[in-house]
């Protein structure tokens, strides 16, 4: 229980030890822990940012999907409308064509009737002349009475 020169020695040992621990352990370790703290904070911030970005991307994708659906249904509607238009047009065309063909056929029939009637008239005139010739025989000159016969034929 004395104070001796050991005191001086111990102070020197203590001072060297404190210096050594400060230089080789305290400061590197404190720096490392500071860096670790920073890295953890960075990591958390990055994770949060990533999550936010993902949410935004999902929202964007949803929006695009909705738009696409809407456009698709618009296109389908348009196509249906167009299809019914085409069908209507086709119907109209067919009806017009039909009517045209019918009209042409009617006029053909009319012409055919007229022609038949004309030739019948001519044949009747010829028969009438032949009849008249039979009746009249020589008294009637075909040439001289042509006008009379034609008139007759026209009245048949």
């Amino acid at each position: 229980m004395n104070v001796t020169a050991t005191l001086i020695g111990q102070i020197i040992v203590f001072a060297v030890l404190v210096w050594f621990v400060k230089a080789f352990l305290w400061e590197p370790m404190l720096n490392m822990m500071e860096e670790r703290k920073k890295r953890i904070a960075d990591g958390l911030a990055a994770a949060e940012r990533g999550q936010k970005e993902q949410e935004e991307a999902e929202q964007r994708a949803q929006k695009q999907l909705d738009e696409a659906k809407q456009r698709a249904s618009e296109i389908i509607n348009q196509a249906q409308r167009r299809a019914s238009e085409i069908v209507d047009e086709a119907k109209n065309d067919a009806r017009e064509e039909g009517e045209r063909i019918k009209a042409a056929a009617l006029s053909d029939i009319e012409q055919e009737i007229n022609r038949a009637r004309e030739s019948l008239r001519k044949q009747v005139a010829a028969i009438a002349i032949a009849g008249a010739e039979q009746v009249l025989k020589r008294e009637i000159d075909a040439k001289a009475h042509r006008a009379v016969l034609d008139d007759l034929a026209a009245h048949i």
């Binding site: 229980m1 004395n2 104070v3 001796t4 020169a5 050991t6 020695g9 111990q10």
Partner: peptide, 16 residues
């Protein structure tokens, strides 16, 4: 033992 309570001529080898 050291000569007195405070004696700077003495070193304790085991402590050091």
């Amino acid at each position: 033992e050291p000569a007195s309570l405070i004696d700077f001529s003495v070193i304790f080898v085991d402590t050091i």
